[in-house]
Amino acid sequence: MSKGIKFPFPGLFKGMALTFKTMVKKAPVTMYPDVKEIPVPRARGVISLDAEACTVCMLCARECPDWCIYIEGHKVEKAPSKPGGRVRTESILDRFDIDYGLCMYCGICVDVCPFDALFWSPEYEYSEMKISNLLHNQERLGEWLKTVPEPPALES
């Protein structure tokens, strides 16, 4: 009986008292499917796309570390705003997919988008039985936009 171990082994029983206390207390559990856990506003849950704002600049696709954003677009000529003016081109977004099977939720795409077309939504319930369904297309990404919360107030 060396090493600071004394006979009636008080430590063992103190530990048992603690587990007993824990047992009679209410467990800090969120009953998930019944009760949803509310994530914080900044949580990086899913990326939503504001297709109106996107100018198909491709910055996000280029900066994504694992290249999981697929963008296709084409240019159309727009009639000059006043007769005789310059013919301008406009980019039209044909395809905007994010593969959440690859995404590592780093947030770089949202950071680099210069036109504020991408936002984080804290939504997290979009698991799929098939990995290919994790590829969210433009429409689905646009739907997430509704769930983007207001930014939290700041610490002064």
Binding site: V40, P41, R42, A53, M104, Y105, C106, G107, I108, V110, D111, V112, C113, P114, F115, D116, L118, F119, W120, P151, P152, A153, L154, E155, S156
Partner: peptide, 29 residues
């Protein structure tokens, strides 16, 4: 995986673009 550090400081803002919805990433209230 916070990915919160940037060269020259910490992540200053979401979006970080020229338009309106830029939201500061300072400590929340």
């Amino acid at each position: 995986h916070p990915n919160f550090n940037r060269v020259g400081g910490v992540k200053p803002a979401y979006g970080g673009g020229s338009k309106t919805k830029k939201q500061s990433m300072d400590l929340p209230a």
